[in-house]
Amino acid sequence: MMKHLEIQEIVKKYNGKPVVNHVTFDMNLGEFVSILGKSGSGKTTILKMIAGTIEPDSGGIYLLGKEISRVPTQKRNIAMVFQEYLLFPHLNVAQNIEFSLKVRGIEKNERTKRMFELLELVQLGGMEKRFPHELSGGQKQRVAVARALISKPDILLLDEPFSSLDFNLRNEMCSFIKSIQRETKTTTIMVTHDREEAMKISDRIVIIDEGNIVQIDTPKGLYNNPTNMFTAEFMGDVNILKREEEFSYMIRPEAMSVSSFRKEGFNKSKVVEKTFLGSSIHYKILWENTFLNISGMNNSEEYSLGQEIYINLPDEKIIKVKHC
């Protein structure tokens, strides 16, 4: 099957330094992919090259097999919601949402009809006459999404759509975006530096560091089978068991079995730190000469500080990763 979007070996340099370095990945129709990386890792630059506001120095971008990296932004039908929303301050909600239809010469009746559909979709019915400065952060964000979706874009690009929202609103918007994306079946790329957000919403995640792709996989694949140290540590807590020259061996905190009494195949260790985190409790334990982090659910057996406990490290749960 033909890929919906293919990014091949794109490079962008600023002042001779590559900020996007031979990035390659592809997407299926209707897929939701997140680009996850730290601040300054080149995420926005990748999105802007796909949107067309930045031209790559080399490499290709293919939409349904057609090379588009030199096609002007206006002719791509790829919509992007920028990190700063960028609602037009002099236009009201309706005018903002209708903008892309207006500039494409769609007639007024059709525009208004579509605008009201989108307004319903983002649950802002009745707000069409408001101006951007009269909206809350979450409402602005929804207007920006509606404005991007009205032209039925081939690809929707979201640049850190939730970063300026507070925690609760963030979760709500995250599920909301996911449901809209499912409903409209729009192939979507979201940029974020929040791992949990990426895991919650994405079919696959592209991990990027200093302009290089580190690993691409499903959230589960990245968490359970990281191929390198960067991914392993980026995706969650890990315990490093053994370091060798090229590889390290590690295990996730919840992958270990714990028992309060001696058992076949279990090793003795001691609780040295205990942190209550609500649904779970984290312990730091000393096993031989190694400190390990383990976690237990709040409703399972609880251990006390200094208690001797027994742990089991199942072979199949031990992850072998490359240093990088």
């Binding site: 949107a51 919509a79 992007m80 037009f88 002099h90 500039v103």
Partner: peptide, 25 residues
């Protein structure tokens, strides 16, 4: 630059961006 980029991504030509976005602002 953001306003111009946003306007172009939404399909506006340079002239449309000047008339619809720059002039009023």
């Amino acid at each position: 630059k953001g306003m111009r980029e946003q306007s172009e991504v939404l399909g506006a030509s340079m002239l449309q961006t000047i008339v619809y976005i720059y002039l009023p602002n």
